[in-house]
């Protein structure tokens, strides 16, 4: 049984099909890179897996059960956009998570904040985009969840801080956890991901093991990304 599994999942917004019959199995113990240009459906897929967005058709299962209130206890989702209440300080954000998530550790949050060079008295409203991005990661990884879905974790984060973020992500990853990362910065994920999910225009192109791909096709994830989404836009075998 896969940790997270979508069956023919589809989401239609008006005239646009954001996710188009995607069937995908993601297992614990892997770090998946979910790749695709803007608007290819990555965020919508994640939001459906987090239970924030209701599918038009198909379903997503967490440990064999349809995504529900129960699964939210074990799935930590981080959106690209800031979503904290505007009156909150960094401390308030931690209190909020501790109020609602049993797997949250205040101690872990404190450590992560320190590494991200954030202090608890900062007002979220006053944070720069880079600081906000770090705060989102810190509070999400402070949960001891079974599934982490981080949407664009490297967005707005400068080169030096990216190493720290990568380290934090790797620390959170383990054999019994599933880590799903989406990013435009494909190169950032070459070494930390072991599988890649390529999505284009709402459709799943492929889900591959990266080292197998490097061995058999002799291409990197970045090369493959170029092949799939490159100039002509046609999938090349």
């Amino acid at each position: 049984m896969s940790m997270l599994e979508s069956k023919e999942i589809t989401k239609v917004f008006g005239a646009k099909t954001a996710v188009d019959h995607v069937t995908l199995q993601l297992d614990a113990g892997h770090v998946y890179a979910m790749l695709g240009p803007n608007g290819s459906g990555k965020t919508t897929w994640m939001k459906m897996a987090a239970g924030l967005c209701k599918p038009t058709g198909g379903e997503i299962r967490f440990q064999g059960e349809p995504v529900s209130i129960e699964s939210r206890k074990h799935v930590a989702y981080m959106s690209t956009e800031p979503y904290f209440y505007s009156w909150m300080t960094v401390r308030d954000v931690g209190v909020y998570y501790s109020d609602f998530f049993q797997d949250y550790s205040a101690e872990r949050y404190r450590q992560l904040l320190q590494r991200m060079e954030l202090t608890e008295d900062l007002k979220t409203r006053a944070l720069s985009s880079g600081m906000m991005a770090k705060l989102k990661i810190a509070v999400t990884l402070a949960r001891d969840a079974q599934v982490y879905m981080l949407d664009e974790p490297f967005n707005g984060i400068d080169l030096l801080a990216r190493d720290e973020i990568r380290a934090c992500i790797l620390e959170a990853a383990s054999e019994d956890k599933l880590m799903l990362l989406s990013s435009h910065l494909v190169e950032e994920m070459e070494a930390i991901a072991d599988c890649a999910v390529f999505i284009r225009e709402g459709k799943l192109i492929e889900c591959v093991d990266l080292d197998t791909m490097r061995t058999e096709m002799g291409v990197s994830m970045t090369d493959r990304y170029r092949q799939i989404y490159g100039h002509a836009g046609e999938v090349q075998a």
Binding site: G51, L52, E70, Y77, Y83, F84, Y85
Partner: peptide, 13 residues
């Protein structure tokens, strides 16, 4: 708004 995630990502019905 995006603040909706605050409520709807928590395990509350």
């Amino acid at each position: 708004t995006k603040e909706s995630y605050m409520l709807f990502m928590t395990p509350n019905s």
